Structures are given as C-alpha cells and as structure tokens.
Amino acid sequence: MKIENHGADERIWYSPQRGPFQVSGFGWFHTERIYRRLPAVPDVYIRPEVDALANCTSGGQIRFRTNSRSVSVRVCLTAGSSMYHMPPTGECGVDAYIGGPGHWRHAGTARFQAGQVEYESSIFDSGTSEARSFLLNMPLYQGVEEIWIGLEPGAEVWAPESYDSSKKVIVYGTSITQGGCASRPGMSYTNILSRRFHLEFINLGFSGNGKGESELAVLAAQISEPACLIIDYEGNAEGTESYRQTLPRYIETYRKVHPEVPIILISRIRHGAESFKPEILEGRLARKKFQMELIRELTEAGDQNLTFVDGSDLLGDDPEEATVDGVHPTDLGFKLMTDRLEPVLRQVIGDSASAAGR
C-alpha cells in the first residue's frame, strides 16, 4: 500500500506491512501482522507488566532496497518519551543504516520533540540516486501503532538481501536486553549483533520483568527455526534463591521443545555500586557460581549444547564508565558487550547459520 503526498516536500508513503519491504524481529508477525514481541493473545499466562512491555518494538527492523535519494518515516507511537536516563531517540526513535550485510553504516536518526506521540522525520538524504540497502531499527522502549516509509516520487523499491539462514537468534532478558539505555535503537547489543550476523534476531527483553517464568520459555519455544537461545535475565532475578528455582525450570521448559538448540547463559554484568555495597557483589558472585555449577551438571547429564558467559567481563575493566547509572549500559557499554559476545556466538552457532562479518 502506498499513499501519495503532493506538496513542497513531496513523498510517496509506503506501509512496510506490504512487500517488497520486510519486517523482522517479531516472532509472530507473519501471522498477526502487528508490531509486537509476543502473541496478541498468548496461549499461556503472562503477567500484565510483561504483556504491556511486549508492545515495545525493541529488535523490530524494516529492511528494503531503493534508489531514492531520501528516506523519511512517519511514526505513530502508543505514547511519548518519558524516561529520565534514556534519550528520546533511543526510547521512541528510528535510526537508519545503509550498506548491506557485513557493511552496515549508520546513515541517520529520526528527529522529533521529546514527548511527541506522532512524528515525521527525514532519516536519510543524499544527492545521488543509486540502489542502496536500508535497515531501519524501530523504537526500543515504546510501542508503534503505525509506521510509514517515505520515498521520493519515481523511486524504485526492491526486496532486501535474503538472510544467510532462516534460523533466528532469540534473546531473553531484562531492561539491558531490551536496550536500556542506548542513545538510538541501532546501539542496543542485540541490534549491533544483528548487523554482524546476517540473521534475524528476536529480542525478548522485558524491562524490570525478565524473571524467568516458565511461560516465557514456552513462548520462546514457539518461535520457529531457532539458531540459538541466549538467556540473560539474572539482573531481574528476585534474589539468589529465586534464581535457583526459575533458571533450571526455564531451561527445562525450553528443552522439552528444542532439546538440541544451543543455549548461551550470560551472568549479570558488574554494577557500579558493587565497590561500596558488598552485598550486591556477594549476590552476583553467588549466582555466578550457581550458574556455572548448573551448566556443568546439565552438561554431565548429557546436554552438550550449553555455554556459559561470565558477564562480569562484558563491560571491560571500568564497567561503571560504560553505564548511564551504574547499571544500564551506554552506547559504549553495548559495543563492549557485543565485541565480547560476538566470538562466543560465532563459535556456538557454527555452520548452522553462516555469519556475514562486520
């Protein structure tokens, strides 16, 4: 579907719901056609908080090729920006990359006023008309009711390059997984990884609510053709004892459907307050020990597709300098995390899904 807009700033507006545009990052989009990270009506119980957060479009991407000299977006959000520690461009914005698999480069970010629920913005402008590959990242912390892509009249649009594999990388976790607090959508660690691996990534990070419920494992297991499941929810665990209960159950539930899909378990990154609040450090170390022991026990019991990643190393030697508030990474923090996770993921998925490289 396209809508013509005649005026001084003439654009032809396209809905990405129609080809040749391709929407990815939503596990149920192919059947429900809505920008949502869980089913509209899940067949298992999920808490209202998780249900609301599922409307945030973190990980959602729109891909296409065009020779248009400019690209704009019209966005209708479910609400405006409201976070004190995250820029509106990350919470509610759209950013654009050009270049194609293995060569993506940032090309623009939507401009709008903080608190706006609807906005229209240019995200790419060039003086030359040539075929280019585009990747648009959708808002991390807000829902999208409608989004339209604006191209210059007469421009052609083609389907994007096919993924290297139909397999998907699924990431379950917390606010950090969801992208808090990247300055723009493309800088969340799952989105950075998606540019280094020419695969579809499904972001199931739920801010403050990644508590490892078995129902969320059931839903994650419904996503077809998984290349890998990454579990990164320790930061929302309600204490060490609660984590000891939920983590084995989450893995067991997923394994009932996908007994051989690789699973990567990431322990929590270091928090800035650990240097003066020893109880925070002690809790993290206790849970890290438990995770290592659990992976060893499950491996000895026959599960050969489990990998543990020590999150205490993900932000480097000065983790507090890579966060907004001692907890949530900045763009620098997310890049550091990605640099350390990329080789692990490459080793784990191996030949099951080829990678495009940087």
Score class of each variant (00 low, 15 high):
3 I>Y: 05
4 E>M: 10
6 H>D: 12
11 R>D: 00
12 I>C: 12
15 S>N: 13
15 S>A: 09
17 Q>G: 12
27 G>L: 04
28 W>V: 12
28 W>T: 15
29 F>W: 06
31 T>V: 09
32 E>N: 04
34 I>A: 01
34 I>V: 15
34 I>E: 02
40 A>C: 05
41 V>W: 05
42 P>W: 03
47 R>A: 03
48 P>F: 04
52 A>F: 00
56 C>T: 12
56 C>K: 10
57 T>R: 08
57 T>Q: 13
61 Q>C: 05
65 R>F: 01
68 S>E: 12
72 S>R: 10
76 C>V: 12
77 L>C: 03
79 A>I: 00
84 Y>D: 12
92 C>I: 03
93 G>V: 03
94 V>L: 00
95 D>E: 03
98 I>A: 10
109 T>V: 11
112 F>C: 01
113 Q>S: 13
114 A>S: 11
117 V>C: 06
120 E>M: 05
122 S>Q: 14
122 S>G: 11
123 I>N: 00
123 I>Y: 00
126 S>V: 07
127 G>M: 03
135 L>E: 07
138 M>P: 11
138 M>T: 10
139 P>V: 01
141 Y>Q: 03
141 Y>R: 08
145 E>F: 02
152 E>G: 11
155 A>H: 07
156 E>R: 15
161 E>L: 02
161 E>M: 08
164 D>Q: 06
165 S>N: 09
171 V>W: 08
177 T>M: 04
181 C>D: 13
181 C>M: 07
184 R>G: 04
186 G>C: 09
193 L>H: 07
196 R>C: 02
201 F>E: 08
207 S>V: 05
213 E>R: 13
216 L>W: 09
217 A>M: 10
222 Q>T: 10
224 S>M: 07
225 E>N: 12
228 C>H: 07
232 D>S: 07
233 Y>T: 13
239 G>A: 11
239 G>W: 07
245 Q>T: 15
247 L>E: 07
248 P>K: 02
252 E>C: 10
254 Y>C: 09
260 E>W: 02
261 V>E: 01
264 I>C: 08
264 I>Y: 07
270 R>P: 00
271 H>R: 14
271 H>A: 01
272 G>A: 01
277 K>C: 09
277 K>M: 12
280 I>M: 08
285 L>E: 15
287 R>D: 14
287 R>W: 10
295 I>L: 04
296 R>F: 06
299 T>H: 06
300 E>L: 01
301 A>F: 01
303 D>S: 02
304 Q>K: 15
305 N>D: 03
311 G>K: 11
313 D>H: 09
315 L>H: 05
316 G>R: 02
317 D>V: 12
319 P>T: 02
326 G>W: 04
327 V>C: 14
332 L>K: 15
333 G>N: 08
335 K>H: 14
335 K>Q: 15
336 L>K: 15
336 L>D: 11
344 V>E: 06
346 R>Q: 15
347 Q>P: 00
348 V>G: 04
348 V>Y: 01
351 D>V: 13
351 D>N: 13
357 G>K: 07
